[in-house]
Design a binder for these strands. Structure first.
Lengths: 236, 236
DNA sequence: CGAATAGTGTCTTTTAGACACTATCGG
DNA sequence: CCGATAGTGTCTAAAAGACACTATTCG
């Protein structure tokens, strides 16, 4: 047996003190024209009964990588299989969890609310962002939520990411509205439309929809390159 | 004793199977007009004798958070106390380390080569990026290095980050040159100077320097907001 | 027709690239 | 004065904001 193989054979992971490592998620969706985040009441100690971001331990047997852990948690809670998923940051220190030094890898996800499996959740699990920021969440989850929303807002300024919150086909007014919800400010109509159409992040379909007073053309995502960004950000 | 305290007392971190968690770093510096990265030959199994990014386990007793782990490793190797340091991403899966499921939190750092404590390193520890990308590094460190350099290049397109690679005072030509080294392309002189001066990321001092044929004005960083970025990126 | 929503025309502003030009030094 | 490096003047181009305008539908 080679020294390398011999070493691995004798290696016992618990010989070293390692931190507790978990994956946490900020799952966003638009409900009733408001940005909502999924928060669950913890049913175990520590911090039992407090609201927390969904998350938990990596399943070393079944998760092939960190993203699979995140996708599994998200699927367990929402039934959604293909969210937009992005790693935000890892936070690790000796004080964030009373059980000891712990690291969490924070993800954020965007899902189209129409794709959620409602049997898995109660209505009270979705919290408007505005209220969530005032709640006292478990552990350091207020900080995690702030980091996730900051990333979402920042990406909304220079990408077309919020498309992931809408169904396949949508009107440009609908798209603009969710940008305005996320950024909490009005955007100029002409610039917005020119921006997304000229950059070919969306294309018109031949279908229209009568939402309010008159028809509106339906557009769909072109599934543009994942790290596309506009030449200039929206004005801050 | 409250149920919460009772629970913590009885809690034993090793009851759960957790991944091996480490911090790895890509430490960049400019040497002889080339971008270099610090690589160390591993002196222990596994992957003994292969080149690897500096990194290792979190010291649960002494490191207060992940950033301290990164700073400690960097200080141990280079003697530099105030690098530019940024978390890139965490990579975790069951196959990147033969010892089992492992997670690494990847950081990148930029340091001014004149600040390095040369006693700690041999000359052969710094490798030009161009060569490093062709080497076979330990574990998945080739991938980690690619992710770090990609982040550095991307930030160089829309921030003034490479200032961190230079001493306190520098000429605009020197600054432009390191941008060109990182991006591996020439930049238009007029645009470059206008960009950094108009945005006030640098200000002129009253000192000059005779580097080549004639004097050049020395500039210094204004220590602008850490997440400042220019309205438009450099053309790609 | 009027109110409401969808959508456009076009002028200005900002900031980057192009490129020819001037400035200052050593030899 | 020449060559090299530092640095500027100014035109053009791209893409965003401002804002007045037209278009379509319902009642």
């Amino acid at each position: 047996m080679s020294p390398e193989k011999q070493f691995i054979k004798n290696y016992n992971a618990s010989d070293y003190e390692v931190p507790l490592t978990t994956v946490d998620m900020a799952i966003f969706s638009i409900i009733d024209q408001q940005l909502h985040v999924l928060l669950l009441k913890r049913d175990a100690l520590p911090e039992k009964d407090k609201l927390a971001l969904p998350g938990g331990f990596i399943d070393l047997k079944n998760d092939n990588d960190l993203e699979e852990t995140a996708l599994r948690k998200l699927y367990e809670k929402t039934g959604v299989e293909l969210p937009y998923l992005e790693q935000v940051e890892s936070i690790g220190n000796g004080s964030r969890d009373p059980r000891g030094w712990s690291v969490t890898i924070l993800y954020f996800a965007l899902i189209d609310i129409t794709k959620i499996n409602k049997k898995l959740l109660s209505n009270t699990d979705w919290h408007p962002m505005e209220e969530s920021e005032k709640l006292s969440l478990a552990f350091d989850h207020n900080i995690l939520l702030q980091k996730a929303i900051k990333r979402l807002r920042s990406k909304t300024l220079y990408t077309a990411l919020p498309i992931a919150l809408l169904p396949k086909k949508f009107t440009l007014t609908e798209l603009q509205t969710i940008f305005e919800i996320i950024l909490d400010k009005k955007l100029p109509v002409k610039s917005f439309r020119r921006r997304v159409v000229d950059a070919k992040v969306v294309v018109g379909t031949d279908e229209t929809k009568i939402s309010g007073k008159r028809f509106a053309q339906l557009f769909k995502s072109t599934g543009i390159d994942k790290d596309f960004h506009f030449p200039r950000p929206l004005q801050d």
